[in-house]
Design a protein around this nucleic acid. Structure first.
Length: 124
DNA sequence: GCGCTGACCGCCA
DNA sequence: CTGGCGGCCAGCG
């Protein structure tokens, strides 16, 4: 039998693996907010952890970090930074439309995607 | 062990 | 629209 020392759950550095997993499942042309990724990863209020996970993610895993934006529908980098420009550029190349510097989450978010599927949304 | 930081979020004025 | 405040919690010096 195992002792009480090693039967603890290995939640140590595993939480970011979940985050990476969720992020990697975001389809092209869609975005998720940090909060949504956190929730889908089993971390209800860990929006900030998501940002750390993305930062710590190895570049060679090809993680689509650009599909994660904040709840305002905006890119979470300063507008004068190269990161902001690059993220916007990649998203636009995937079909995401920026309107006045913002993405319409009702159309490009998961919830919006589901709604469109349910309603066949042409008129949204 | 303590304090500050942070690709955030939601609420309120 | 802007700005401020609290909450959240893992990293880092």
């Amino acid at each position: 039998m195992s002792s009480d020392k090693d039967n603890k759950k290995p939640a140590d550095a595993n939480w970011y693996k979940e985050v990476w997993k969720v992020v990697s499942e975001i389809p092209s042309g869609h975005v998720l907010t940090y909060g949504e990724v956190a929730r889908l990863s089993g971390l209800p209020r860990a929006a900030r952890r998501v940002s750390q996970a993305l930062r710590r993610a190895p570049g060679d895993m090809n993680l689509p970090w650009h599909r994660v934006i904040n709840s305002q529908g905006k890119i979470s980098f300063p507008e004068d930074s190269i990161g902001w420009k690059r993220q916007k550029d990649i998203l636009e190349s995937e079909g995401v439309v920026f309107l006045k510097g913002k993405v319409n989450l009702d159309q490009f978010g998961y919830r919006g995607a589901v709604d469109r599927l349910l309603w066949g949304g042409d008129d949204l």
